[in-house]
Each structure stands twice: as structure tokens, then as C-alpha cells.
Simulated assay, not measured.
Amino acid sequence: MTFKIQRRQLTAVVAAALALGATASFAQASDKPLRMVLPVGAGSGVDTIMRAATPSLTKALGGQAVVIENLPGAGGITGTGVVVRAAADGQTLGVVSNNHVVNPSVFKKMPFDAINDITPISVVGATPFVLVVNPKLPAKNARELQALLKAKPDGYNYASSGNGTIIHLAGAMFVDAAGVEVRHIPYKGVGPMVADLIGGQVEMGVVAVPAVQGQLKSGALRAIGVMGKTRVPSLPDVPTIAEQGFPDVDVSGWFAVIGPAKLPPAEVKRLHAAIVAAFNMPETRDAMAKQENIINPMTPEASAQFFKAEQERYARLVKKANIVAE
């Protein structure tokens, strides 16, 4: 699904959030810190985003402290499980990404229901993905890459940050759209994956744009195309994969704030207003722009529908690509 900044929509939401704040919807600061659980490691994309936004979120919450807790493991299941089991009092939240709705299709058993055991507060925004290749590969665009891969079935490799991750599924999405056969090589994280892409041990892969900005500028990697439906400001000359004749390729790394199931409506409204206000503050906007993140907070209701649609979409792709947890 594509994220775009809808100025009129965002302005209306911000105005509503500020109005709520004026009527004490943001409430007085709680003596107890807000626990923000991130089911990812320190230094990851979601971690970087939330640490940049935390000072603004504290302001939006009337001065309530926000404590980030990194609990990585099992594709995000470990940390999200802590949120699911927390009291539904608005004092424990989590930030999840695509893997949250991918996991039910990849793992045979889940300790919780990814849709029914959470309360969506807002799908906040997304980080663009880009398909890259080692520069020794002669392909300069998606069509040339498709021709190269078709000429030598199963003769090339595409890397991912792990089996069943969104990076894996993004690569599989292009492979499926191009109708080619490519061997999947899973790594334990983005760092080792990018290192081997640069070294030429693997030929291609999908990565978040911020993770490879330096390598693209230096020529250590070549960008084939943006995986979403819109181009990236810092890569104006890199067309989208969809533009290049593969309209079904549309994926980005979205992130969302959630709470435990049965979070009271008043708390959902309060927290959503604070999230919107925090991400609209100038310092947060600047940080998000530098990180290439597209911010367009969804309402809780729209977020709930988005979660369901994304889970169904990835379930089809997982089944088609025959992806199973290792």
C-alpha cells in the first residue's frame, strides 16, 4: 500500500488533535512513564524513528515521560507479546511494522491474534524500500534485470534480512511480478545482507532507502527502482518499479502504534491525538524528512482496516512464494 502526504487531511487531523489538547484531552502528565515497547533491536529503522519522536511525544502528552524498551526476537513476536499481555490502561504501547501482519502466515503457531489481541492507535507512516544490485551486474533498470534473470533461471541470488521478513517478501514480490526464478539467501539482519551485496556474494536485494543512502551515492550499490508507487525525494532519478512496467509491485516499511486489546475509547482518542501532534512538531518533521520517512497518521478506525487488508495481502504472497518459518 502506498503512503502519500495528504496535506488537507493531515491539517484537519492536527487541528482536531490540538482542539482536543485545548480541552484537556491530552490530560495532565501522568506520574508514571509511558512504556513504549519496540519489538526490534536498538538502531533499527523503527527504533531510530521513535527515539527521534520521543521528545515531541512527551510534550504532546503534557510532559509525561516516554520510556523506550527494545525487546527484539522471533520477528517481533516477543516484544509484541509483552504489549498484548499488558494492562489496557494506556500506559503500555508498542510500535509494530509489516512483520506484525506477516507473521501469522509464516509461523504455524502464534501466541496471540495479530488483529484481535491489539488496539490500533495509528499507522503513522512508512519508510520507502529500494531494489538494489551489485554494480557488477550489467542491469541498469527493472526490465534489464528481468531479462538478465530470465536468461539464466536460478542462476542468481537475492538477499533478505531473514526468512519470512518484510524484506524477504518485498524481494519475492518483484520475483513474482517479473516471472523469474531467483534463489533466496536469508541473512540475520540488514547489516550482513548489505555487506554481502557490496561484496558480490549475492547479486540483488530490497532494502530501506536510509540503510543504503551512502552506498548508493558512492556507487557501491546500484538502485534499480523504488518499491512503492511514488519516487523518493533523495533519489529523484530512480523510477519506481511500477513505473517500469510492474504495477503490482508496491511495498514499503510502514510502522504503527498499538496498544493491548480493549483499550478504552477515551484512551485511544487521547493517545492518537498525542501521536498526531508529536509527529507534526517541527523537530519531528525535520527528523522524519532526513530519515526519508513519509508521515501520514491514520485514524484508529482506518488503521484497523489497514491491518486486516495487509494481513490478507501478505498471506496470499506467502502462500504463492511457499515461505515457511525456519
Rank of each mutant, 00 (worst) to 15 (best):
I5K: 11
V14R: 13
V14W: 11
A15M: 14
L20I: 08
L20V: 07
A24V: 11
A24T: 10
P33M: 10
L34F: 07
V37T: 11
L38M: 10
S44H: 04
S44M: 11
D47G: 02
M50N: 09
G62K: 04
Q64T: 15
V66C: 07
N70A: 04
A74C: 11
G81Q: 06
G90S: 03
L93W: 05
V95S: 01
V95M: 01
H100R: 07
P104S: 09
F107A: 08
K109H: 13
M110W: 06
P111N: 08
P111E: 08
F112N: 01
A114P: 06
I121A: 07
V123K: 15
V123R: 15
G125W: 05
V130E: 00
L131S: 03
V133K: 01
P135W: 01
K140G: 12
A147M: 12
A147E: 15
L149C: 01
K150C: 06
P153L: 04
P153W: 08
N157R: 14
N157A: 14
G164T: 03
A170F: 05
A172Q: 15
A177R: 11
A177M: 04
G179H: 09
H184D: 14
H184W: 10
H184P: 05
P186T: 04
K188G: 13
G189W: 10
G189F: 10
M193H: 06
M193G: 03
V194W: 01
A195W: 00
L197D: 01
I198H: 00
I198F: 05
G199Q: 09
G200K: 10
M204R: 03
G205Q: 06
A208E: 12
V209L: 03
A211I: 13
G214T: 14
S218T: 14
A220N: 05
L221P: 03
R222H: 11
I224W: 00
G225E: 03
R231K: 15
R231M: 08
V232Y: 03
V232C: 06
P233E: 01
S234F: 07
P239G: 02
T240V: 00
A242L: 02
F246A: 05
D250K: 09
V257P: 07
V257C: 08
I258D: 00
I258W: 11
K262V: 02
L263D: 02
L263S: 04
P264G: 03
L271D: 03
I275E: 12
I275K: 14
F279I: 05
A289M: 12
K290A: 15
P297G: 05
P297I: 00
E301L: 12
S303C: 02
A304I: 01
E312I: 00
E312K: 06
Y314E: 07
R316S: 12
I323S: 12
